[in-house]
Amino acid sequence: MYIGTSKLTHTYWPGTPFAADALKNISFSVGQGTFTLLIGPSGSGKTTLIQHLNGLLKPSAGEVYFDGKKIGPDKAALLALRRRVGLVFQMPEDQFFSETVFDEIAYAPRNLGLDEKKVEERVNRAVAQVGLERSRLLDRHPFQLSAGQKRRVAIASVLSLEPEVLILDEPAAGLDPEGKGNLLNLLSSLNRAGKITIMVSTHHLDEIAALADNLVVLNEGGLVMSGKTKEILARGAELKELGLALPQVTGIMHELAARGLPVSTDIYSLSAACDEILQAKRADQR
């Protein structure tokens, strides 16, 4: 098992009248180099689950695994884990505290005790990875950047740890369409070219579904579905039942198929939908 959990349960405020099971008996695993979406309505336990994957929360029962090993309570091991599994929180730019973009991204590598030359290398590499123009931006105050740029600085500040796994909680929240598009391209290239294992928690499937190998679906703290993207998205009615929506293009393909146009319905991106419809129309005309 590369990263995952076995019978993980997490109880908030245990032993008090407010005790609440945020996660119940969750078992799942994903392979190295994969792209996984963790979906579920608000309050389903997505954020609680990802906080276990880099040891920020400890299981009330069950185990969490990374790279074949059980995550234990040992402090040194947890520190090492957090270098290898990077976590980008929701609205990460709310937590900026440095005076310049450079310092913000350099914070983690400096904490690793690297010398300033190595720190600079790490910052430059992270900045290049997220596609920011370094000459123009590194000296600026993080709050002077656009929302899309801030989000990329936040991701760069985690990438500067050179993690093997990157976990992002609602990374597109609050971004405009262009910012969202850039972010999806970034995640796709980190996964494909950078070989980083990626896990994204979200309640919006849309275009991001086209990037994902696997889907893990939570509801009320329980795991309700887990598998290949194609298999899970074929269960549209069940997802809808949970208050989730299929990607809009997938919905369109379902409608077209229902009206007799011979199109496949496992289509998650506009460009794939375009090709599929054109092919069906051409076959129709023949």
């Binding site: 309505p41 608000s42 929240a173 609050g174 309640h203 919006h204 208050g243 989730l244 929506a245």
Partner: peptide, 10 residues
Amino acid sequence: EPTAHLDPKG
């Protein structure tokens, strides 16, 4: 942006 933080049902 009243729906930015909400899931599809919300």
